[in-house]
Amino acid sequence: MFESERSQRATAGVEAHARILWALPVTAAEMAHRREHGHEALERLFDEHAIVPTDPRRPSVA
Score class of each variant (00 low, 15 high):
residue 1 M to Y: 05
residue 40 E to H: 04
residue 51 I to M: 14
residue 37 H to Q: 10
residue 11 T to P: 03
residue 60 S to M: 10
residue 41 A to D: 01
residue 34 R to I: 10
residue 14 V to T: 01
residue 48 E to D: 12
residue 7 S to K: 06
residue 20 I to M: 08
residue 22 W to K: 07
residue 35 R to E: 15
residue 51 I to Y: 11
residue 5 E to I: 07
residue 23 A to D: 04
residue 3 E to P: 08
residue 49 H to F: 11
residue 38 G to D: 01
residue 57 R to K: 15
residue 4 S to P: 06
residue 58 R to Q: 04
residue 30 E to F: 06
residue 8 Q to W: 13
residue 61 V to N: 00
residue 32 A to N: 14
residue 12 A to Y: 01
residue 26 V to R: 01
residue 30 E to V: 04
residue 16 A to D: 07
residue 26 V to A: 02
residue 24 L to K: 09
residue 61 V to K: 01
residue 5 E to C: 06
residue 21 L to W: 12
residue 21 L to H: 12
residue 9 R to K: 10
residue 38 G to K: 05
residue 17 H to S: 09
residue 13 G to A: 02
residue 3 E to C: 15
residue 34 R to Y: 14
residue 10 A to L: 07
residue 2 F to W: 14
residue 46 F to T: 02
residue 30 E to P: 02
residue 5 E to L: 08
residue 51 I to V: 15
residue 35 R to Q: 15
residue 60 S to I: 06
residue 12 A to N: 04
residue 57 R to D: 14
residue 13 G to C: 03
residue 9 R to I: 09
residue 39 H to N: 11
residue 8 Q to G: 09
residue 45 L to R: 01
residue 17 H to A: 10
residue 47 D to A: 12
residue 61 V to M: 00
residue 43 E to K: 04
residue 22 W to M: 08
residue 62 A to T: 01
residue 11 T to V: 13
residue 8 Q to K: 15
residue 58 R to D: 03
residue 45 L to I: 00
residue 39 H to S: 14
residue 23 A to K: 05
residue 27 T to A: 05
residue 58 R to M: 05
residue 28 A to W: 01
residue 50 A to W: 10
residue 5 E to F: 10
residue 33 H to R: 09
residue 12 A to H: 03
residue 50 A to P: 03
residue 31 M to N: 13
residue 53 P to H: 10
residue 44 R to S: 01
residue 56 P to M: 10
residue 5 E to W: 08
residue 4 S to C: 14
residue 48 E to A: 15
residue 55 D to C: 06
residue 22 W to R: 09
residue 41 A to L: 04
residue 58 R to C: 04
residue 57 R to P: 03
residue 29 A to R: 12
residue 36 E to Q: 11
residue 16 A to T: 10
residue 20 I to C: 07
residue 10 A to Y: 10
residue 20 I to H: 08
residue 58 R to H: 05
residue 58 R to E: 03
residue 17 H to Q: 09
